[in-house]
């Protein structure tokens, strides 16, 4: 516990905590303003049904013109809109946990937050020799590793909580009344052959959606932390460690937007946004929540275990 306090204090004094909090704050403010302008547009029409109907009509007319690579996504979109009209579900924009339809929060911002916190948590101390100071204390390497891992993860979870609350607050203040905890949320995790199965669509109350979203995001952050710990353990230079983390997550995560290769969806870094698997937002690239979870955990947890094994066994010549 005390070792954990030490690690947290170090992050505070290195100003990592401040930067890690600032990043999602800026994102939330940006998304809040975006949501506000979007909501203002809907309000003009008083009733959401005509605007959904309008969108559905235009989507259906555009379908023949959609390039073949995006056809599935367009078809999914149409299915979802039809479902909304049929079941009287007003919106799929769902506040903090999914307010970023682009998935930027879990694929970009939170990996970045974790890298800021943990990218050099071991490598910086390896390179300047300060790790000795802790290794020479009667702690044992297991505690040192676990306290560092937990410091990164717990702070990241706190920042996630803070971001969710901030997002909710911003939407609530700017948009007003638009979100309530019982607002129904459209869930479409049932993907058959890359298509949203209309029978699998169902509605969750907003509060349950938030909880589920938080749990899934926690799993993603745990997995990302595992990989970051491995990189930070293996690479001694802090600059190299941080760059490697950035390449692994940010470039890896964005690959599927640049390269139209279907197999990419089985890459762990393409599955960071688990919430998208639930809401069906990931569309054609989706492999379903269960497969997505397994891909992510199956890759990342062994990374974490390898990092632990290396850290506990290695000779330190610092």
């Amino acid at each position: 516990m005390n070792a954990f306090v030490n690690e947290v204090l170090k992050l505070v004094y290195r100003r990592r905590l401040l930067v890690a909090f600032l990043l999602p704050t800026i994102l939330s403010l940006g998304l809040g303003i975006f949501a506000y302008s979007h909501a203002a547009l809907i309000k003009q029409s008083e009733n959401w049904r005509p605007s959904i109907q309008l969108q559905l009509n235009s989507d259906e007319h555009m379908l023949p013109l959609v390039p073949s690579s995006q056809i599935r996504q367009a078809q999914n979109q149409i299915q979802v809109l039809r479902y909304q009209l049929a079941h009287n579900v007003s919106s799929q924009s769902t506040g903090p946990a999914a307010s970023d339809a682009t998935g930027i929060s879990m694929t970009l911002v939170f990996p970045l937050v974790l890298i800021i916190l943990g990218g050099d948590i071991i490598s910086s101390e390896l390179s300047d020799g300060t790790i000795k100071g802790i290794l020479l204390r009667p702690l044992g390497r297991r505690k040192i590793f676990v306290s560092k891992f937990l410091a990164v993860l717990v702070i990241a979870l706190l920042i996630r909580t803070y971001t969710d609350m901030l997002g909710y607050l911003i939407s609530h203040c700017l948009v007003g009344g638009w979100l309530s905890f019982s607002t129904p949320v459209l869930m479409g995790d049932d993907i058959v052959n890359g298509m949203v199965n209309i029978a699998g669509l169902h509605v969750w109350p907003y509060w349950a959606f938030i909880l589920l979203g938080y749990a899934l995001n926690a799993v993603t952050m745990f997995s990302v932390s595992c990989v970051i710990m491995l990189i930070s353990t293996v690479i001694k230079s802090p600059a190299m460690a941080v760059s490697t983390c950035v390449i692994t997550f940010l470039v890896g995560g964005l690959l599927d937007q640049w390269i139209p290769w279907d197999g990419l969806k089985y890459f762990p870094m393409s599955n960071l946004d688990l919430v998208a698997q639930v809401t069906g937002a990931s569309g054609a690239g989706s492999i379903g929540l269960f497969a997505s979870l397994m891909t992510l955990i199956g890759f990342c947890v062994p990374c974490g275990l390898l990092a632990y094994w290396l850290f506990v066994r290695r000779d330190f010549s610092v």
Binding site: A3, G133, L136, V318
Partner: peptide
């Protein structure tokens, strides 16, 4: 055991006192 191995490196971003507090916490 109290030990110094090669040059004793302390955390540069902490004060001497804070460094010792870090040691004290894990004693």
């Amino acid at each position: 055991v109290g030990a110094i191995v090669e040059t004793p490196e302390a955390f540069r971003f902490l004060t001497g006192w804070q460094n010792l507090k870090q040691c004290a916490r894990v004693s």
